[in-house]
Design a protein around this nucleic acid. Structure first.
Lengths: 215, 215
DNA sequence: GTCTATAGATTGATAGAC
DNA sequence: GTCTATCAATCTATAGAC
C-alpha cells in the first residue's frame, strides 16, 4: 500500500464517521456538507470527489453498517428455522425474536464506532427524507419477510395478518428503544438510557414475546 | 363578525392546515414557508405576520391538536383510576391502556382534518429538530407520568422501572403504527395501512396488554 | 392585512489551480 | 487528491407601499 491510497482511505473513513455521527444526531436534512467536512477535518470538496453527492454519501453510510448487520440477523433466523426443522417441531417464538433483536441491540457493543448508527436506525423509518427511508426499507424488507415467515411457523394459530401487525409493533418498540438509548442524553422521559445490550434484551424480550403470543 | 376578522381567521386556519399537512408529510426541516403559503394560497409574508416565525408556527400547529387530545386522555385515565378506587380494587391494565390509546387512535376520525396530525405525532419523537421534539415531549411528559402511575397501580408486582420501559415499548409501537397508518400510501412493508380506528385498537390492545402483564 | 421586493445567510455542487 | 473560490439556488425574515 503506497501513501496515496492510505491517505484516501483515511479521508473516506473520516467522512463516513463524521457523517454517521451527524446524521444520527441531527438528521439528514439537518446536516450540511460543511458540518461533515468540518468534523472530519477534510476539505469541503472531498465529499463530492469521493462520494459524488450528499445522497450517495448517506447511502454509503447506511450500507456500511446495515449489510453486515443484516447478514448476521439472516443467519441467526435461518439457524432457528433449521434447528426446529431438524427436530420436526415449531420454532420457539422467543428464539425467533431473539435471533432478530439480539444482534441488533448488541451491534453497538460488538462494532466499534457503531453507537451512532444505533440512533440512526431508530430514526430511519420516520425520516422525512425519501433517500434515507427508502434505503432502510429496501434492505430490511427481505429480512422482515423471513422474520414473518419464521414467526408464523412458530405460532401457526395466529393469522398471517395478525402476525404482520404484531411484528410491526415489535419493530416500533425496538426502534423507539434504539432511538432513545442512542441519544447523547443519559435520561429521557424519566428513564435511564445508559444500558448495556444484555440488560436491554432482558427487559425487552418478555414484553415482545408475550405480545406476540397473546390470546 | 365583520369582514376583516373573518378574512384573518381564515388565513390563519389555512396556514395551520397547510403547515400541518406538509410538516406531517415532509418534516419540519423539509418544509419551507414558501410551500406552506403556496398550498394555503396566501402571501409569503402572512406567516411571519400572523405567527412570528416558522418556529412559533410549528408550535401553534402542535398545540392546536395536542392540547385537546391530552385533555381527553387525562380525563379518561382519571376516570379509570377513580372507578377502581371506588371499588377498592386495582384498575385493569387493559382499561388503563385503552384510556390512553383509544382517544389517540380515534382522534383522526373524531376530529375532521386531524388525519395529518396523526402522522406528525408518529414522527414527533424522532424529529431531529429540537423545537418539534421538545414541544411534544413537554406536553406528553405529565400525561406519561399519570399513565405510569395508573399502570403501576394496576400491576403492583412489577417494579416502577420495568413499567417505565414497558410503557416506552408501548409508546414506540403506538407511534410506529400511527406513522405508517398516517402515510398517504395504502401499503407499507406488505401491510394494509388503511384501517379504521376500532380495528386498529382491536389488533393493538391484546398485544400491549399481554406485553405489560408479562411474567 | 396583504402585497412586492429584497436583504442576508446558507446550502449543494463544481471549476480550475496546484 | 486536495485546495480555494465561487456559482446558482434556496431559505427565513423584514421593510415599506398600498
Amino acid at each position: 500500500m503506497n501513501e496515496v491510497v492510505t491517505i484516501q482511505a483515511d479521508t473516506k473513513q473520516r467522512i463516513l464517521d463524521a457523517a454517521e455521527f451527524l446524521f444520527a444526531q441531527n438528521g439528514y436534512r439537518g446536516t450540511s456538507l460543511r458540518e461533515i467536512t468540518g468534523r472530519a477535518a477534510v476539505n469541503l470538496a472531498a465529499v463530492n470527489y469521493h462520494f459524488g453527492s450528499k445522497k450517495t454519501l448517506v447511502e454509503a453510510v447506511i450500507k456500511r453498517r446495515l449489510l453486515p448487520l443484516n447478514s448476521i440477523r439472516k443467519k441467526r433466523l435461518e439457524e432457528v428455522k433449521a434447528a426446529a426443522d431438524r427436530k420436526g417441531k415449531q420454532p420457539d417464538i422467543k428464539d425467533v425474536l431473539s435471533a432478530f433483536i439480539e444482534p441488533t441491540l448488541k451491534f453497538r457493543e460488538t462494532n466499534p464506532g457503531a453507537e451512532h448508527f444505533f440512533t440512526f436506525i431508530g430514526r430511519s423509518f420516520t425520516d422525512p427524507d425519501n433517500t434515507v427511508r427508502d434505503v432502510f426499507v429496501r434492505y430490511i424488507k427481505p429480512l422482515f419477510a423471513l422474520l414473518h415467515d419464521t414467526a408464523c411457523e412458530s405460532l401457526p394459530d395466529h393469522s398471517s395478518d395478525i402476525m404482520f401487525w404484531r411484528l410491526h409493533f415489535t419493530l416500533g418498540a425496538l426502534f423507539h428503544t434504539m432511538h432513545i438509548c442512542g441519544h447523547l442524553k443519559t435520561e429521557f422521559m424519566n428513564i435511564k438510557t445508559r444500558m448495556d445490550a444484555d440488560s436491554l434484551i432482558d427487559i425487552m424480550l418478555p414484553y415482545i414475546t408475550a405480545g406476540m403470543k397473546a390470546k
